[in-house]
Design a protein around this nucleic acid. Structure first.
Length: 370
DNA sequence: ATCCAGGTTG
DNA sequence: CAACCTGGAT
């Protein structure tokens, strides 16, 4: 989480993990000022004709777990890490989506392989997706999301490239189901004990590691994974981390989400969209993705990834994650999304469809009044 | 009591 | 799909 996305607002002075927890607060717990104007200023043009999700089509996912589909990925660019310079705050500003030919709304045919069979299906480029994206960027730019401010990310920002990559991998491993602050604390403890490289992790026993990373989610399991990952990295990659998708996926505890993330962040190699729970949820709320056959929502992050990649221009693949994560942390929250302050609510098929307030405040019965 | 924290595994 | 871990929010 925190360590895993690219943008960084805080410049930690010395230790990358210096700013552990204190002084940092989740943006949405600080209610002083609204991050942006609540006034919707975007014209309502017809919402992209989403019919009401006819539920229940339990498409089964076929089992091939660790082999990730790469349909639609122009696999030409095994880009070397271009440059290790990290982005500064000024570069955090999102630039407007520039219209490209691939951005023209419309439908096109897509061929996907399903269990060996080539299946053609119509893919719709969502209407107004650029407007929506720009709106979200505006909201993101003026607001603070944990994903932004927490980020002493880039674990090992001040480490040499190899150590930094390894730290990125570790922080990714730890991050799932764990709050930013907690993960940050764990990384700091590891860092303080000199445990952010393969050699030292291999030399440290599991219990010690577990203790240090506690209370990240699933710390016992992750302590195991860390050991194993360190062993593999040491034995096969000279202490560095793998630079290919499949090699990353083969590491224990690293699934698609983290693999794409690490590939993006550590190797600057965009082979796919990093789809986490936020990207998954928001893409579905916006009507941006659907299962191969029909209109239904995607049921897994992987389905979302495949679906998104079919129409989203590749320049957006990398930025879409931090963008939607921050949006999801502050506005388009999983529970009670704040549609009223969302400037793209006119363009969102799901706006105001979920409950907006905790529970309707109890109402007094006649008999109880005065 | 239930859901969520940038999921992954057998 | 249940398990994996724990604390905080609703």
């Amino acid at each position: 989480m925190l360590f895993s996305h690219r943008f960084l607002l805080l410049r930690a002075p010395i230790s990358p993990f210096r700013c552990a927890g204190k002084g940092l607060r989740m943006a949405n717990t600080r209610s002083s000022s609204r991050p942006f104007s609540p006034k919707p200023s975007i014209p309502s043009s017809g919402s992209n004709g989403t019919s009401k999700a006819s539920l229940r089509c339990r498409a089964r996912r076929d089992g091939a777990k660790k082999t990730v589909e790469t349909t639609g990925v122009p696999s030409g660019e095994a880009s070397e890490p271009k440059d290790d310079r990290l982005l500064d705050i000024e570069e955090f500003a999102y630039k407007p989506v520039k219209a490209s030919k691939s951005s023209t709304p419309g439908t096109f045919l897509d061929t996907t392989r399903v269990k060996g069979f080539a299946v053609e299906s119509k893919v719709e480029t969502p209407i107004n997706w650029e407007l929506v994206l720009d709106g979200i960027k505006k909201m993101r730019f003026s607001g603070n999301a944990p994903v932004d401010t927490m980020g002493c990310e880039k674990a090992g920002r001040f480490f040499p490239p190899k150590e930094r990559r390894f730290a990125v991998l570790i922080s990714s491993l730890l991050s799932s189901q764990t709050k930013d602050e907690v993960n940050h604390g764990a990384m700091k403890r590891l860092s303080d004990n000199g445990l952010l490289d393969a050699v030292s992790i291999v030399k440290t026993d599991e219990a010690t590691i577990a203790k240090l990373i506690y209370p990240v989610g699933f710390y016992l399991r992750k302590a195991k994974y860390m050991k194993k990952v360190a062993e593999v990295c040491l034995a096969e990659y000279d202490g560095d981390i793998p630079d290919s998708l499949n090699a990353l996926l083969s590491l224990p505890g690293i699934g698609p989400k983290m693999a794409y993330l690490v590939l993006n962040v550590a190797w600057n190699n965009v082979q796919g969209i990093c789809v986490d729970t936020h990207v998954h949820r928001i893409s579905n709320r916006l009507g941006w993705v659907a299962q191969p056959g029909g209109v239904q929502k995607t049921r897994s992050p992987e389905e979302t990834r495949i679906s998104l990649q079919k129409w989203l221009p590749k320049e957006e693949w990398d930025p879409i994650n931090p963008l939607l994560v921050g949006f999801g942390q502050t506005v388009c929250t999983p529970l009670r999304p704040k549609c009223s302050i969302c400037i793209v609510n006119q363009l969102c098929p799901s706006a105001f469809k979920e409950s907006q307030t905790p529970t309707p405040i109890k109402k007094l019965k006649r008999s109880e009044e005065s």
